[in-house]
């Protein structure tokens, strides 16, 4: 129980820390000496990718996230080593692998969530929309607005449902009530939660069920209009019904968002993703179309892992 509470606080703290950091950074940028904040380049998506693996295969479009020889170190220990992979827009990419293989490290590197951990270092290139996220001039606020994150445990703020979603837009300076109403409704619609909560938007978010809380967190992440959504085991604390709803939501969202999901549930990766990457001991072992990886993987280690022979 205590451990649970601690985990919940840790992940809640992380979101609050990230958002507070965003808040302060924004305030700083309004101050007379703003920090240099080059805008992220606009996405250069050549072709819209279909939501089906069949459509995926035929598509040749610009990747939205490119990783080339990317390393991430915790002190002297490498969390991930030499990761080279392209993540494509408007598709779901799943990262699977045994515990400690670096999948969360890689995911959290994409929006530099790992910066919150002291004594860490990145090397190589990890770019979102062509911009290396580890360059010094990168504005973390802009980056995290573009690359939203959903955590393992639902972590709504201890505020009303409305305020949870309006939090990000308010940070962006939107004050007009009618505009906020519009955003909240749209995000709740997009997160498939509107019908369930439309009459009780003032209710505390903490009164929602676990599954509803997680969809609220997704709605909250959508409110800043991200291009990419990172999901770190988003269903591991949910029951099968809530998991089903979140998976359905992931499938729906992939028409407009790029989703990268880390999951321990292999069937979930198989069900929701277009591409799957298998990590082991900090290295990328295999990356390909999900239907190929789960029916006929090319690497023996991948096969051993997905069939439960090791890991």
């Amino acid at each position: 129980m205590d451990i649970d509470k601690e985990n919940k606080m840790t992940s809640l703290d992380q979101t609050i820390a990230a958002n507070t950091e965003a808040l302060y950074a924004r305030d700083e940028s309004k101050s007379p000496t703003p920090a240099p904040a080059p805008a992220m380049p606009t996405p250069s998506i050549a072709v819209t990718v279909g939501a089906t693996p069949e459509a995926e295969e035929a598509v040749c479009c610009e990747p939205i996230i490119t990783s080339k020889g990317f390393d991430f170190y915790y002190g002297k220990k490498a969390g991930v080593r030499d990761i080279t992979m392209d993540i494509y827009p408007c598709a779901v990419t799943a990262i699977i692998g045994p515990s400690g293989c670096g999948k969360s490290t890689f995911l959290r590197s994409i929006n530099r969530m790992n910066d919150l951990i002291p004594n860490t270092r990145a090397a190589g290139r990890l770019a979102v929309n062509g911009q290396n996220v580890y360059e010094k001039q990168v504005n973390l606020v802009n980056l995290r607005q573009q690359v939203g994150m959903v955590f393992q445990r639902p972590n709504p703020f201890p505020k009303s449902i409305f305020d949870n979603i309006a939090y990000g837009p308010r940070l962006q300076g939107i004050r007009k009530r009618s505009r906020l109403d519009e955003i909240v409704e749209q995000c709740l619609h997009d997160a498939a939660l509107w019908k369930e909560v439309k009459d009780e938007l003032k209710k505390s978010a903490l009164a929602l069920s676990g599954g509803q809380q997680q969809r609220l967190c997704i709605a909250r992440a959508l409110a800043t209009k991200p291009k990419v959504l990172l999901m770190d085991e988003p269903c591991s604390a949910l029951d099968p019904v809530a998991t089903g709803k979140v998976e359905e939501l992931i499938r729906k969202l992939r028409t407009n968002y790029t989703i990268v999901i880390v999951t321990h549930n292999m069937q979930q990766a198989a069900r929701v993703s277009d591409r799957t990457a298998f990590f082991c001991l900090g290295e990328l072992i295999e990356y390909g179309l999900t239907r190929d990886v789960f029916t006929n993987p090319t690497n023996e280690q991948t096969e051993a892992y997905i069939t439960g022979r090791f890991g």
Binding site: M266, Q267, A270, T295, T302, E303, I306, T307
Partner: peptide, 9 residues
């Protein structure tokens, strides 16, 4: 068991 890869085949 929702088998995959060689087991599924």
């Amino acid at each position: 068991y929702q088998p995959a890869a060689i087991d599924l085949r």
